[in-house]
Design a protein around this nucleic acid. Structure first.
Lengths: 89, 89
DNA sequence: TCAATATATTAGAATATTCTAATATTCTTG
DNA sequence: CAAGAATATTAGAATATTCTAATATATTGA
């Protein structure tokens, strides 16, 4: 798959917010089936979390699957883990 | 070096613009000692290029060294190459 | 020193992002 | 079906980003 600055910059832009980066990094370690807990951990409002999650979905970084009243979020772009690994070096 | 969402999201945010991502990806392949050529290749104004370069400098992604009336830009954060590699996978 | 070249800075209008508060939707269970 | 739980959406004010146009600064060579 080759590099496309227009598309790829959107991915980086979506990751380029501290809350969204924490959400995604968190999903690499814990499962994402409890948004309320996410909200508590991040210290933000439910609405704000939902909006950030929507941005991450729209950009193709996360996908959501419903499970009763809960929604499970997981990382759907396999490049994201490598990007976050690269940050840690 | 460990991951810091506040700081690292700034890096991704700076890369999260098509022009800036093109500049940085370009610097991985060609030397950056000719901003006029950069401007031509990107089809943007000199002022705009200079402003994007300033953002990339401020975020620590690029460093500039002067050489006469010209300025050479190069990538100063070693994680950046890995991030761009990760995008290509 | 003066003009030319190369890059940087400033100002400001247009647009985009971010957050809070309020409300809506969806699903489950009694 | 009604109520509660979990998440999503909307509206709108505050702030930030992006671009163009104009101007400024720095360096070199005649």
């Amino acid at each position: 798959m080759s590099f496309n600055a227009e598309k790829d910059s959107e991915l980086l832009k979506a990751l380029g917010h501290p809350i969204r980066l924490k959400i995604v990094a968190g999903l690499m370690e814990h499962d994402g089936c409890n948004v309320s807990k996410m909200v508590d951990n991040l210290g933000i409002s439910q609405s704000n979390a939902s909006q950030h999650l929507a941005i991450l979905k729209r950009s193709g970084i996360l996908k959501a699957t419903r499970n009763g009243t809960k929604t499970c979020f997981s990382i759907s772009d396999k490049r994201v883990a490598n990007i976050i690994q690269a940050l840690k070096k």
